[in-house]
């Protein structure tokens, strides 16, 4: 029955190819487009109107634990669109939000003096959560294949799942160094 349903799902879905909003990036694209990749803890979030008072941006300060690419210092500031100033809230569905204390790996684009932003918005943000049993920091990696490879990304693949941050960092550094 499982095989049958899987086949039905694929057939039906394949007849209606759709999707929109953002262009997906492969993991090596995300790494390549990043000027900085930081692992750290969110130390603060401040929202402000733009100079022309048209939009609200949130400025996120990260206390860096480690840099996987392009070190910038003990703390780092990046921005995402949206946020709250006074009694006005600007929200953009799909844009990641941050809270003080969040542990994250963020892939950032933008060279100094510009304030960087996550590559592909949500695509460049990975939450780090402690393993409930061991406390080991875990990351859910994106689908990753070797350069030039092809892989269909199915949900629930037993080969995928949360990995220790150290393993994720090694994977990222492998891409940074062009080893993959």
């Amino acid at each position: 029955m499982q095989v049958l349903l899987t086949a039905c799902l694929l057939v039906v879905a394949a007849a209606h190819l759709t999707a929109t909003t953002y262009l997906p990036a492969s993991f090596n694209q995300i790494v390549a487009e990043s000027s900085t990749i930081v692992y750290g803890r969110v130390a603060g979030v401040r929202a402000a109107w733009s100079d022309d008072r048209r939009t609200i941006d949130s400025f996120v300060t990260v206390q860096a634990v480690d840099y996987l690419k392009g070190a910038r210092g003990a703390t780092l500031l990046f921005r995402v669109p949206g946020g709250q100033v006074g009694d006005r809230v600007m929200v953009i569905p799909g844009v990641p939000s941050f809270r003080e204390g969040d542990l994250v790996v963020v892939f950032l684009k933008g060279a100094t003096p510009a304030i960087p932003h996550p590559v592909g918005l949500a695509q460049g943000v990975f939450r780090v959560i402690p393993d409930p049993r061991s406390g080991t920091p875990l990351v859910v990696p994106p689908p990753i294949v070797a350069r030039g490879g092809t892989a269909r990304i199915g949900r629930g693949d037993p080969a995928r799942g949360p990995v220790p941050f150290t393993a994720f960092a090694a994977e990222v550094r492998g891409f940074v160094e062009g080893a993959r």
Binding site: P24, Q29, I144, T150, R152, I153
Partner: peptide
């Protein structure tokens, strides 16, 4: 559903 092909997704 998506797939990774070459350098893209």
């Amino acid at each position: 559903e998506t797939e990774v092909v070459g350098d893209g997704r």
